[in-house]
Amino acid sequence: MGWTPDLSYEEFLSLAKTLGLNVEEPHRKELFSYIQEVFPGLRKIEELDLSDLEPMTFPSPLSPSREEGEERES
């Protein structure tokens, strides 16, 4: 459950309530505008090919990263 590009204002209000946010007027309109402004930029991640990648929860320099073309260990 989260933001989608076609999220309407009514759906946003319903989602905000479900997520436990207590947003009153005029703040709720500001929050909706802010989300509509910021979230499209976050979707740029969808352009990346993430197949074969596991989440990196912390930058972990000591974990060896797989080099380009290197075979995966089984």
Binding site: M1, G2, W3, L15, A16, L19, G20, L21, I35, F39, L42, I45, E46, L48, L50, L53, E54, P55, M56, T57, P59, S65
Partner: peptide
């Protein structure tokens, strides 16, 4: 709060 668990994990995969 509107970032989904899937969005967060996808971002961590992109971080890798």
């Amino acid at each position: 709060v509107f970032i989904s668990a899937t969005d967060y994990i996808q971002a961590q995969r992109a971080r890798a």
